[in-house]
């Protein structure tokens, strides 16, 4: 079983200890996620057509491709949101490797709550709750009492530049501020892998850059792993590796700043 992370293992005060960049020394060679021969069809359309992919601990990976190329399906499958028709996704944890495609719905829900963090384009924040309650909710759902969850949530919001806005409701925040709340919620549980689906897609370019900086620094900057779907080549260029998809197949893997394109399926 996957071990629960009921509290952040690294205090948020230390999240900006070093800037995140395309620095390969930040991640280890051990894969945290290994996808093998993933296939997923919607009717006659193949969304994933034999995808093999390894995500290393501490690296940032951008998944790019045109609409309908299968990038969101790949992210959802890696995160246990969807089950593939065939293939496996191995997640490394302290208890060893586990194929998450074999887990039932409630076990995958638990996994998503405890081991992963998510940042989506729409934020998916609960409008009735305040900023701090939205973040604390992630801890409370994992069983932490409210009194213990609120201070941790406050710490994260402060670390992400939202000090003084804790009691504001989501409708009272700007798009960029709301996305920071979503980033705090994704990481307050101590998740080691963060999945982001177009996290800056709904923001203007200046705000998008700010949010991306916060996302990179608070994830890979702390040694965690970031898997991000994006349409934006500038956003993708901030990652260690870019995976390009077309018609459900990986067509190329590139390392920004490196002239070499890696052949699909190559080991890292």
């Amino acid at each position: 079983m996957i071990e629960a992370n009921s509290a952040p293992e690294q205090a948020p005060g230390t999240i900006f200890s070093h800037a995140a960049s395309n620095n390969p020394t930040q991640h280890s060679s051990a894969p945290v996620l290994s996808a093998r021969a993933l296939r997923r069809a919607y009717g006659s359309t193949l969304a994933l057509d034999g995808v093999d992919l390894e995500i290393l601990t501490g690296e940032s990976v951008a998944i790019m491709g045109p609409s309908g190329s299968g990038k969101s399906t790949l992210l959802h499958t890696l995160a246990g949101i969807e089950k593939p028709d065939s293939g496996s996704v191995l997640l490394a944890s302290s208890a060893g490797q586990q194929d998450i495609t074999t887990l039932g719905e409630s076990a995958r829900s638990k996994l998503r709550r405890e081991a992963f963090g998510f940042v989506f384009q729409s934020g998916l924040l609960i409008p009735e709750l305040t900023a701090v309650e939205n973040v604390a909710m992630a801890l409370m759902i994992n069983g932490l009492p409210r009194a213990a969850a609120l201070p941790q949530a406050n710490q994260w919001l402060s670390a992400l530049g939202l000090a003084g806005m804790e009691e504001r409701r989501i409708g009272q925040l700007s798009g960029g501020q709301a996305q920071r709340v979503a980033i705090a919620r994704a990481q307050v549980t101590g998740a080691k892998v963060i999945f982001a689906d177009e996290p800056t897609g709904a923001l203007d370019s200046a705000t998008g850059t700010e949010v991306l900086n916060v996302l990179m620094e608070s994830t890979v900057g702390r040694g965690n792993t970031l898997v991000m779907v994006t349409h934006d080549a500038d956003v993708a260029a901030r990652c260690d590796r870019i995976i390009s998809l077309r018609d459900g197949k990986i067509t190329s893997e590139t390392r920004p700043g490196s002239p070499n394109t890696i052949a699909p399926g190559a080991q890292h």
């Binding site: 996994l111 998503r112 759902i141």
Partner: peptide, 16 residues
């Protein structure tokens, strides 16, 4: 509807 579906993706159970 969109929020409920999204929260479910995040691992928040429908029962909550």
């Amino acid at each position: 509807a969109e929020l409920y579906a999204g929260l479910n993706m995040l691992g928040v159970q429908r029962s909550t």
